[in-house]
Design a protein around this nucleic acid. Structure first.
Length: 563
RNA sequence: CGGGGCGUAGCGCAGUCCGGCUAGCGCACCUGCUUUGGGAGCAGGGGGUCGGAGGUUCGAAUCCUCUCGCCCCGACCA
């Protein structure tokens, strides 16, 4: 491809709205343009990257026996109503009516449609298993689109769905995807982790996310180097660092005038936060719940929500009414008929907590002796905590979610009556899994993980081109120009994807642009070197330059992995 | 949805607090000459009515009201 014929609008200055590195570079290097919040146009270079990623997705999905289909983006409300998600999902779903007044929506994912198809067509266990996938546009009216291409309202997704006759079958389909995903992300040149994740409103029991570490990531993941435990903080367990206590502390009240927060009391009494019990009153659907945490820990709302259902913080008047205490001086002792959920770290130790009377805290408080509670992990895991499996110190990293896999079970098949007859002629619901990958996120994560001050450094497999030929001063030197074209034809003939910068521009501009665009290898043809029979092969990442004979270029590229 | 910030030429910005001549600067763009291995130099030139609407005023980019858009933090993220 000739650069002069290709639309690659590079810019020197970064548009001010971009903050994520990948976003800045994609704008500067002419890969994308923004149409509106969360809506992006892919320019020729950007689309080539997406196309290459999609090719890898197709190859690996086909390799596990998955079959590509294409589903409508515009969908009737009916199936969504049958699964209940029409009502569970709020503003995030784009809804509209057709001319006949029928409720429709734009697909944000395709469980409903895929399951509907299965319900119509699958009759017998003999037709199972099936894996169907598509690479299709999804639409979600995101509360806050952000970070360029990372969180958009319209995006491409590879989504596949498995249909099995048994739980064992589901596990196999899940494993196939797990392995395929590892191959896909490895081929795309990404550093990534597979972590345990929340099933969220997808339902089902087991789920994993594939996470590409990056400072622009929206998720925190918890990692144990010792045993390999890896989980999203959404679900990660941990053992907070042990604290030491004075076992002799008497059970008595201390005067703490106007000291309400753990921080205030901690400073006032000169006791570290881990010697305190934080008591938080919440109002759940079933009524008030008192949550207990160690003073240095944070309440993990999602973990608690799994126990109590949705809740909200109690207001000050409610606290007085329900507990008879002023906010800031709540303790877990002596409450009748209120559900108390405590983090297990509080099982041992001697604590300070609110005395249930104004301006007083109580010392010497022990679990089981002074209060009873149901024990559940309700704290946020943090770096430095102990691993829940092996006890070693945990690490936290920010990461971009590039893929996820869910064991759905029968949630959708039951709702949409997708059933089959088993070997003994009995009707059973199909057992499903669903599996997603965001191609744009792969591209963004690749840039986040592979760039330098000068621009993008594409991993070989997803670079828009394999090599860029940069003739310098071609306009004045027919030799340079014809050498460039000879090389171009030669490489092209081999199936190498070549970008030739045939623009009549100064050397500096071409070299800067080449670094920005980020094709992993450059062949620079200059007059002086050419007179001696050489061109330069430059590695974008290392900046290492080798003088080679033009005839050696195809082999040299192959050796460098640039095919 | 809560909090914050920003909309002035294609891009990046100054001017706004404290209204006052033809609204500036850099980059990009056009013309000419010179230059040509890391975003060239000189000279000349084109382009904006200040996000939009309404108001205050002799006078509004600047003050007031409303509104639209974009970004960031949080909530949310099926």
């Amino acid at each position: 491809m000739r650069l002069s014929k290709m639309f690659i609008p590079t810019v020197r200055e970064t548009p001010s709205e971009a903050t994520a590195e990948s976003h800045k570079l994609m704008l500067r290097a002419g890969y994308v343009r923004q149409l509106a919040a969360g809506l992006y146009i892919y320019l020729p270079l950007g689309w080539r990257v997406i196309t290459r990623i999609n090719r890898i997705l197709r190859e690996e999905m086909d390799a596990i026996g998955a079959q590509e289909v294409s589903m409508p983006v515009l969908q009737p409300a009916e199936q969504w109503q049958q699964t209940g998600r029409w009502f569970d999902i709020k503003e995030e779903m784009f809804r509209l009516k057709d001319r006949g007044g029928r409720d429709m929506c734009l697909g944000m994912t395709h469980e409903e449609t895929m399951t509907w198809l299965a319900s119509r067509e699958i009759r017998s266990y003999r037709q199972l298993p099936q894996i169907w996938y598509q690479i299709q546009t999804k639409l979600r009216d995101e509360a806050r689109p952000k970070s360029g291409i990372l969180r958009t309202r319209e995006f491409l997704m590879k989504d596949s769905y498995s249909f099995d006759a048994s739980v064992e079958g589901l596990r196999e389909s899940y494993k196939l995807h797990e392995d395929a995903y590892h191959r896909i992300f490895t081929r795309c040149g990404l550093k990534f982790y597979q972590v345990e994740s929340d099933t969220g409103m997808m339902g089902g029991a087991i789920a994993h996310e594939f996470m590409a570490p990056s400072p622009s990531g929206e998720d925190d993941i918890i990692l144990c180097a010792a045993c390999g435990y890896q989980a999203n903080v959404e679900v990660a367990g941990s053992v907070p660092p042990a604290a030491s206590f004075d076992e002799e502390t008497p059970y008595e009240d201390v005067h703490t005038p106007e000291k309400r927060t753990v921080e205030e009391v901690s400073r006032f009494l000169k006791e570290p936060p881990e010697h305190f019990i934080k008591s938080i009153l919440l109002i759940a659907g079933e009524g008030p719940v008192l949550a207990l945490l160690r003073g240095d820990q944070q309440l993990h709302e999602k973990k608690l929500q799994r126990l109590t259902g949705p809740f909200r913080a109690a207001g000050k008047p409610e606290i007085r009414e329900i507990l008879g205490v002023e906010a800031g001086f709540i303790g877990p002792m002596d409450h009748e008929g209120i559900r108390i959920i405590a983090d297990p770290v509080l099982r041992t130790g001697v604590y300070i907590t609110g005395a249930n009377k104004p301006h007083h805290h109580r010392k010497g408080v022990r679990a089981a002796v002074n209060f009873q509670a149901a024990w559940h992990d309700i704290h946020v895991a943090a770096g430095g905590d102990g691993c829940p499996r092996c006890g070693a110190a945990l690490r936290v990293e920010k990461a971009i979610e590039i893929g996820n896999i869910f064991q759905l079970g029968t949630k959708y098949s039951k709702a949409l009556n997708a059933v089959f007859l088993n070997e003994s002629g009995a009707e059973e619901p199909i057992i499903m899994g669903s599996y997603g990958i965001g191609p744009a996120r792969i591209a963004a994560a690749a840039i986040e993980q592979n760039h330098d001050r000068d621009g993008i450094i594409w991993p070989d497999a997803i670079s828009p081109f394999d090599v860029e030929i940069i003739p310098l001063g071609a306009g004045d030197s027919p030799e340079v120009e014809s050498a460039a074209w000879d090389l171009y034809r030669e490489l092209d003939k081999n199936g190498t994807e070549v970008l030739l910068d045939d623009r009549d521009l100064r050397a500096g501009v071409k070299l800067k642009d080449a670094d920005l665009i980020g094709i992993p290898r450059q062949i620079i043809i200059g007059e002086r070197n050419l007179k001696e029979g050489f061109v330069e092969l430059k590695d974008r990442r290392t900046k290492e330059v080798r003088r080679i004979r033009p005839a050696m270029a195809p082999d040299a590229l192959k050796a460098a992995g640039g095919e």
